[in-house]
């Protein structure tokens, strides 16, 4: 009997995506330890990785990293298929759609901060819509919208600046490698 061996050879692209997804997952798990005043409002530090990947490798890689992060982090945190997971997934999908559009804006004028804020708004928009349709079928959830919008602006700005700083650092290292 001949043994058949199936060998999966990860490409350089696979490794790159896995490396970035691992960083994003680590940030999400670390962030889960931070106590937060409002459910649904959190910094979303993993998005720094998504933004960096978007700027360096394009939207496809960013989508892989973002979605792998949502699935793997929810498994690690015991949230898989819980309501929080679906909110997270809806937010990530909406953010990716927003990023697909935002990445087409002229680079000279719109940097990672724009991408970050637009994605953050798409994120809370999708979460509020899903929460309204499924979890809290009452217009009361929209009373949280201004607060969540404020968080989107604040954390979008902070994450965008962090991603921009990271990109500058990576560009510097690339030049001097």
């Amino acid at each position: 009997m001949t043994r058949s061996v199936i060998e999966l050879v990860p490409t350089a692209e696979d490794r790159r995506i896995a490396r970035h997804a691992a960083a994003a997952i680590a940030l999400t798990v670390a962030e889960a330890a931070i106590p937060l005043p409002l459910p649904g409002v959190k910094p979303g530090l993993a998005n720094i990785v998504t933004l960096t990947v978007l700027a360096r490798w394009g939207w496809r890689d960013a989508a892989w990293v973002s979605l792998l992060r949502v699935f793997a982090a929810s498994l690690l945190l015991g949230q898989f298929l819980a309501p929080g997971f679906f909110l997270s997934l809806a937010g990530a999908l909406a953010s990716l759609l927003a990023l697909a559009g935002a990445a087409r804006l002229p680079r000279r004028w719109f940097g990672p901060v724009s991408h970050s804020i637009l994605a953050a708004f798409a994120h809370i928009g999708a979460q509020l819509a899903l929460a309204r349709l499924w979890l809290v079928p009452h217009d009361g959830v929209f009373y949280l919208a201004p607060l969540m919008g404020g968080a989107a602006v604040l954390f979008g700005l902070v994450n965008g600046l962090a991603a921009a700083a990271l990109l500058r650092e990576l560009a510097f290292r690339g030049e001097n490698a």
Binding site: P112, V113, S114, I117, G149, A152, V153, L157, G160, L161
Partner: peptide
């Protein structure tokens, strides 16, 4: 940090605050 804030970024930031 100011270097990372492009004119379009400021525009989107202001629009976001205004929306809130």
């Amino acid at each position: 940090w100011r270097e990372s804030l492009l004119p379009g970024d400021c525009l989107i930031l202001v629009a976001g605050v205004a929306l809130c």
